[in-house]
Amino acid sequence: MAFQSSVISEKYLRSRKIPSTACSGCGLGQNHKLVIQAIDELGLAVNDIVWGTSIGCAGRQTFATWKGDGFAGTHGRAYAIARGLRIAMPLDKKILLTVGDGDAFGIGLMHLIHAARCNTDMTVIVNDNLGYQSTGGQFGYTTPQGAKTDSSPYGMFEHNLMSDGMDVMHILKGAGATFLARHVAMDGVRAVESIKKAIENPGFSLVHMPYPCPTNFGARELGSRVPVNALRYIMERTAPMGQENENTVWATGIWHDTSGSRPEFAEHIWASVNKIRKTGEL
C-alpha cells in the first residue's frame, strides 16, 4: 500500500480546506490522511459518508474538508446529532465523526456513551492531542500524568481516564460499543486496517488516535516546539498491544471487536416502529 495522498485528497477532499490551517508539525493531518486512506481502500464514494465534526483543533481543522455532506456540532454534542441523523437519513449511508479528546472524553462523554449504548452505526475518530490545545494548551482526560500544561503548571496530578490503570475504552466497552481500537498518528498501515474495520462495523466504532501537538503541548511539557520532540514523546510511550513496557501509555491495536454482534440502533428502531405500525404491538 502506498500513500497516494494527492490523488485521494483530490478524490475526497475540498481543495478550499486542504491543506488545513493546522500548525506546522501537527499530527492531525496524519490521522486525517489515515482515515481517508481507509475510506479509499474500502471503495466508498463521497456520497456514502456524512462527515461530522465538533469543536477544537480536531473539529475545526477537519470540518468541511470532506467533499460530501458535512456538519459540525457544538462542543461534545456531535454524537447526539449523529444519533438523530442516523434515524432520519438513508440507512445505507455511513456517519463518520472526527472529534477531539476534550470533546469525546470530556464534555461529550455522556452523549458518546449513549451512542455506544444504542450501538449507533457511526465511526468516531478521536484525535487526541493530549489536551485542550486550541485554547492554548490545558490538560484533558487522557493527558499523561505529570504533564505540564497551562492548567497544570506543576504537572498534571488529577486522576483521569488513562491514569491508575484506567482506560477510557473500558467505559465504552461497558456501554456497548462493538468496535474499539487505538492507534497513534505514526501507526500507518496498522491504523488504516483498524479504521477500515471500524467503518465496516454496522454499529458503534471508536478509534482513539493520539497525535503530537508541538505547538502547545510541546512548548509546555517538552520545552520546545520542534515537531520531532513531540513525535518522539508519543513514540516513546507507544507500543503495540502485547509488547508494552513500563513507559507504555498507549498500547496500540484493536482493543475490542464484536462487530455485528448487536442489532444496529436505527435498523432496530425502524424495525420496531414498522412492526408497531402494522400490528399495533411489538
Partner: peptide
C-alpha cells in the same frame, strides 16, 4: 402515537441531547 404513524420517539440522556437528537432528525429531513 408516533410509531402508529410511522414516526420515531427517542428518549435522550438529557434535554440538551433531546434537542440535539431533533437537530439530527431535522438535518435528515424529518
Amino acid at each position: 402515537r408516533l410509531p402508529q404513524v410511522g414516526g420515531v420517539y427517542l428518549q435522550a440522556e438529557d434535554e440538551c441531547a433531546a434537542m440535539h437528537l431533533c437537530i439530527g432528525a431535522s438535518l435528515g429531513g424529518m
